[in-house]
């Protein structure tokens, strides 16, 4: 089946089985490895991507469902020679350890920040409900998302609110 869709802003015509999962197609065929493969059942959120600007688990989407859709992966939001505000904030908050969950968290966090530039911690926790992180815990990731809305870094200091 030929699927006409767009990936990271580029229109694509893909000849692919409609029963193939988006995650497999991205990783195995297109070699876009930013969306990570964790649980494959929509619990861990490591494979989170955007479909028409909304977060979705790419392990729970079939290629056949994507006709006319716009898909964005982390490769699509990376900017050349600079970090996005959330990426920068994740770095300054030391929110990255193994980094396996980060691409997914980044996709969800970015959508949240696009909708609400100054979210509350509760809103951030609600947003991260569909993500699992096994090393650092969530506090630093929440700090980082919250930090994007705070005044920019001065003198190399992290944009972070003091921990309560």
């Amino acid at each position: 089946m030929i699927i006409e869709w767009s990936l990271n802003g580029r229109p694509l015509r893909s000849e692919v089985s409609p029963f193939r999962k988006l995650l497999d197609y991205l990783r195995q065929d297109l070699k876009l490895l930013g969306a990570k493969e964790g649980c494959r059942e929509g619990k861990c959120g490591a494979c989170t991507i955007w479909i028409d600007g909304q977060v979705a688990n790419s392990c729970l989407v079939l290629m056949g469902q994507l006709s006319g859709k716009e898909v964005t992966t982390i490769e699509g939001i990376n900017e050349k020679d600079k970090f996005t505000p959330l990426q920068e904030s994740l770095l300054t908050a030391s929110a990255i350890e193994c980094g396996f969950c980060i691409p997914g968290m980044l996709m969800s966090g970015t959508v949240l920040l696009n909708q609400n530039p100054d979210p509350s911690r509760l809103q951030i926790r609600e947003t991260l409900k569909g993500h699992l992180c096994a090393c650092t815990g969530y506090q630093k990731i929440i700090d980082a998302i919250e930090g994007v809305g705070l005044p920019p870094a001065v003198d190399g200091r992290a944009r972070m609110r003091a921990r309560r």
Partner: peptide, 9 residues
């Protein structure tokens, strides 16, 4: 209902 990712789909 469920998680934000699931609610969107």
């Amino acid at each position: 209902t469920s998680t934000p990712q699931i609610r969107n789909r």
